[in-house]
Simulated assay, not measured.
Amino acid sequence: MVQSINSTVELTTTGVSYLGMGGKVGKFMLGDKGLEFFNDKNVADYIQIPWTSINQIGANVSGKKISRHFEIFTDQGKFLFASKDSGKILKIARQHIGNDKVIKLPTLIQTIASKFKRK
């Protein structure tokens, strides 16, 4: 059985992890020590990211709408997730890691426009 890094849980929700090939459906658990993702099909397939190891976390924002997809940047690499509650996840992350580490990622249209501006 997997041991959680959190002693208290602030939010539990469903979502998808895009680590490796294809998406893995599972549960997010956010608590006092970090963010955890547990795969529904294989409990031994999990991701635990302590708040202290997160360099940045961000999502696409257009107007007041936050995208389902969000990215977490750590020293170990980049993790891509999706959840219907991505706004709640970002709010809890902001409380633990600070305002300066929660960022707005560029939308697809902004990314394409920046590529044309460079040329």
Rank of each mutant, 00 (worst) to 15 (best):
H69D: 13
G26R: 14
L90E: 03
K101Q: 09
E71W: 04
I72Q: 09
K115R: 10
M29N: 03
H96Q: 15
A93C: 03
G15H: 09
G34S: 07
T111F: 01
K64M: 06
N6M: 01
D45W: 11
K41R: 15
L30I: 00
I54T: 09
Q48A: 10
G23S: 08
D32K: 05
M21R: 14
V9P: 04
Q95S: 13
F116V: 13
N39K: 12
T52G: 04
F70D: 00
M29C: 04
G98Q: 07
K64A: 06
R94A: 02
V102C: 12
D75G: 07
L35A: 11
A113Y: 04
F37N: 09
S4Y: 00
G31T: 10
F38Q: 14
G63L: 02
F37C: 05
D45K: 14
I54C: 07
A93Q: 05
N39D: 15
I92G: 06
K84F: 05
N6L: 00
Q3A: 06
K119L: 05
F28I: 10
S17H: 07
T52L: 06
I97G: 04
F81I: 03
T8K: 15
D100W: 03
Y46T: 07
I49S: 02
F28K: 11
K65N: 14
T74E: 08
I47Q: 10
D85P: 00
L11D: 07
K101N: 09
T107F: 03
I72W: 04
V25E: 15
D85Q: 15
D75C: 02
G22P: 10
N60L: 02
K65M: 12
T12K: 13
Q95N: 14
S4L: 10
I47M: 09
A82Y: 02
H69T: 14
A82F: 01
E36L: 03
I72K: 08
V9R: 12
E36D: 06
T8V: 15
F81E: 01
K88H: 11
G31E: 09
K65F: 12
K84W: 08
A44M: 10
A59D: 08
F28Y: 15
A113H: 03
K78N: 12
D85M: 05
N39W: 13
D100A: 09
I103C: 01
K101C: 02
G20C: 05
K91S: 08
D40I: 08
N6G: 01
K33A: 00
F38C: 06
K33M: 06
V102R: 14
F28G: 01
G77Q: 07
K104T: 10
W51D: 05
V16H: 13
Q76L: 10
K27P: 00
V25H: 15
K24H: 14
G77P: 06
V43M: 04
R68I: 00
V102H: 12
M1N: 14
F81D: 01
S114Q: 13
I47N: 07
F70S: 00
S114V: 03
K84A: 04
S53N: 06
L35D: 13
S86Y: 08
G58E: 11
K84C: 01
I72L: 07
L90P: 03
T13L: 03
D100T: 11
P50K: 13
L19R: 15
N60E: 15
Q3H: 06
G31Y: 07
K41P: 01
S67T: 12
K101M: 02
M21C: 02
S7V: 00
T107V: 05
S114I: 04
I97P: 00
S62W: 10
K33C: 00
S53T: 13
